[in-house]
Design a protein around this nucleic acid. Structure first.
Lengths: 225, 225
DNA sequence: TTTGTATCATGAAAATTCTAATCATTGAAG
DNA sequence: CTTCAATGATTAGAATTTTCATGATACAAA
């Protein structure tokens, strides 16, 4: 997941970036209205963290502007402002959530996750990719129209690939996802191999294509190419 | 966990209470300074949600006062105030966190959980109760000085009892805890019986006392009496 | 007190998850 | 083009988790 952090307090900017990078997000930084504007016009992001008070402009203007370029991204407003006004305005302009400074980084992380989840699943319960369909309500997976039974861990892993299509996911990131953060990073994550193997076997048996490409020394990527 | 909600906007008060009750907390309500004062002088709470602006007094005074009676509880300040002053003062007076209105109930919940966690685990990694000791860092359990090996689910369940000493926990609450909320409530939770049985057996073998009492039709309670 | 039903306890079996050993492949270095 | 070390794939089986069937117990109603 790619995140743009727009924040003029450099310390906070770095702090957030470091934390989120450790949590396996790809972070880009902007410490002014202008830099943010440039980045937004060029790249696509999944999540935008937006500080309202910038030295060279108001974040809400940026939000208005940006809704034209990049409507896919979720926006979380970061505000030190004391009036609720800015938050309300921000939510009106299409922000998904807001945080008031100061905040815990772990909380920011859980909000980011929540926004990602909502953006993916609100309204429709099915995700599709070529011959594959996931129904997130019944937690069932269909390949070429036939249901293939996945275990809980297999399902979680496969869904994670689906959501992170075209992105390289490290073993560590996958393991952390399966074990909701509280996993000991000193462990070895060999069991990922096993689950992956099971998923691939089931896809093969069902006559589907193995879209999970191995990137040697890096991780795995769910993609067509 | 027992929570006192001090808030004069009745709608919000009810809203919070309903939500938190569904999340398996025991809620008590106070819509004025005076009622809150009375409750605080009589009962003990785990968490206190404190609105600063009350019709018959300032919440910060209440906070000062209450630190004398009930120093064990965690305090989360709810504030609609626009000055950061009240928040800072509140945190100075020993509040653990604060929220600015309006807020998402799910966020409130995650903050409550965070405060409970911090209050329990900050500084010391061990929880003790009579002949039982839990080391939350190494995730090991000792009974009469001897280590007893618990599986992950057994450990999680046992720790949850420890944290919720003297409280009745329903099967549903236990199951939800073990499966991080995303469990299907239509499922049957029979596996709780099995894990409980295993825990009790291991305690027995180690020569410990079974402090987990069955409350017929209700749930279970970890207690001495 | 007896009876019936719902809840809980227990143990065994099934399913899933994880570990560990072995083999295969990749990419780098000579 | 080899060789080597690191990484990934595969498989078997150990450990854990979950399901299921059966028996025991508590509570309520007759």
């Amino acid at each position: 997941m790619k995140i743009l952090i727009i924040e003029d307090e450099i310390e906070l900017l770095i702090g957030i970036s470091n934390y989120l990078t450790k949590e396996n997000y790809i972070c880009e930084l902007a410490d002014s209205f202008q830099k943010a504007e440039t980045k937004l016009s060029i790249y696509e992001y999944d999540i935008i963290l937006l500080d309202i008070t910038l030295p060279d402009g108001n974040g809400l203007e940026l939000l208005k502007l940006f809704k034209k370029f990049n409507s896919k991204a979720g926006v979380i407003i970061i505000s030190a402002k004391n009036s609720t006004d800015d938050k309300i305005k921000g939510l009106d302009l299409g922000a998904d959530d807001y945080m008031t400074k100061p905040f815990q980084l772990s909380e920011l992380n859980s909000r980011i996750k929540a926004v990602i989840r909502r953006r993916h699943f609100d309204g429709n319960n099915t995700l599709e990719f070529n011959e594959m369909v996931i129904n997130t309500e019944s937690k069932s997976i269909y390949i070429k129209g036939e249901e293939v039974v996945f275990t809980r861990k297999e399902y979680d892993l496969f869904l994670y690939f689906f959501i992170n299509k075209n992105r390289v996911l490290t073993k560590e990131a996958l393991a952390e996802h399966l074990w909701d953060d509280n996993i000991d990073l000193a462990d070895n994550f060999d069991f990922i191999y096993t689950h992956l193997n099971n998923i691939r076997r089931k896809i093969k048996i069902a006559g589907g294509t193995d879209y999970i490409k191995t990137i040697y020394g890096m991780g795995y990527k769910f993609t067509e190419q």
